[in-house]
Amino acid sequence: MKLYINGNETELDEACATLADLLSRPEWKERRMIVELNGMIVGRDDFGTVLLADGDRIELVHFVGGG
């Protein structure tokens, strides 16, 4: 399915079904994230149950510590 992650078009295989699946990918899994799905914020507790669909727009905001 086709997703738009931080504005970038990204093609994912069907195995990637939930937000948790997406966030377990190597490029994201070590990071602390705030996630917006189609403009709605998603709580951490719901990552495992929210299903992704073709065309979803996902905003991933990651925390950093430097100052």
């Binding site: 990071r31 705030i34 925390f63 950093v64």
Partner: peptide, 30 residues
Amino acid sequence: YGISMTIVPGQSACLHCLLDSVPAGGDTCD
């Protein structure tokens, strides 16, 4: 990259609401 949030006690979510524990060094290290 940069990030910021204003936290007003009693009104906004706090940093602990957003992060359930202290992130390990690796994922936030500069």
